[in-house]
Amino acid sequence: MENTEWKGHYNKLEKSCALPSTTLCKAIQLINEGFDPPQEIQAVDLGCGNGVDTAAMLQEGYHVLAIDKEPDALRHIAKTLAPRYSGKLRVLLSPFEDLDELPANNLVNASFCLPFCPPDHFAPFWSLISQSILPGRYFSGHFFGPRDSWSSNTQMTFHTKQAVEALFRGFQLSYFEETAKNGKTISGKDKFWHVFHVVAQKEKVLE
Rank of each mutant, 00 (worst) to 15 (best):
G61L: 04
K161R: 12
F168Q: 04
V64D: 06
A166K: 10
D120F: 12
H76L: 07
D45P: 07
S187G: 14
I133A: 04
I186Y: 14
A78Q: 15
P37G: 07
R137P: 00
S130D: 13
T22L: 11
A163E: 14
P38F: 06
S111N: 12
I28A: 07
K161L: 05
N32P: 00
P103M: 01
S86A: 15
C113H: 03
S140T: 08
V91L: 09
N11D: 12
M1S: 13
H159W: 10
F168T: 03
P83H: 11
F125V: 15
R169V: 10
S111W: 01
T179P: 09
L74D: 09
Q29I: 02
N109Y: 03
Y175H: 15
I41F: 07
N182V: 09
L81S: 05
P135F: 03
D148G: 06
L92T: 02
L81C: 11
D68C: 06
D72Y: 11
P124L: 01
W193I: 15
P146I: 08
L13P: 08
H159K: 06
N153G: 12
L46W: 02
D36W: 11
R90I: 03
V199G: 10
H194E: 04
K189H: 05
N106T: 00
D120T: 13
P135A: 08
F143R: 02
A73C: 09
N106P: 00
S132I: 00
P95V: 10
P95A: 10
Y175P: 05
T185F: 10
H142F: 11
N50A: 14
Q155P: 00
Y10I: 03
S187M: 14
K161G: 06
P135Q: 05
C17V: 10
Q172L: 09
D100K: 07
L128T: 06
S187Y: 11
Q59D: 13
L173Y: 01
E203R: 10
L30K: 05
R137E: 09
I133V: 09
F176K: 08
I186Q: 14
A166R: 03
R84Y: 14
L13N: 12
K88C: 13
Y62C: 03
N50V: 01
T154S: 15
K15Q: 14
D45E: 02
G49Y: 09
F143K: 02
I186S: 15
D68I: 10
L13C: 08
F168N: 06
E203F: 00
K12F: 04
T80F: 05
E5W: 12
L102A: 05
L74T: 11
G136H: 12
D68N: 05
E33K: 07
F35S: 13
K7T: 14
F143C: 01
C17Y: 13
D148R: 06
E177C: 03
F192W: 08
E177V: 12
S130G: 07
G136P: 14
F144P: 13
S16N: 14
V44K: 04
F96N: 05
K184S: 05
W150G: 08
Q162W: 00
L58N: 00
A200G: 04
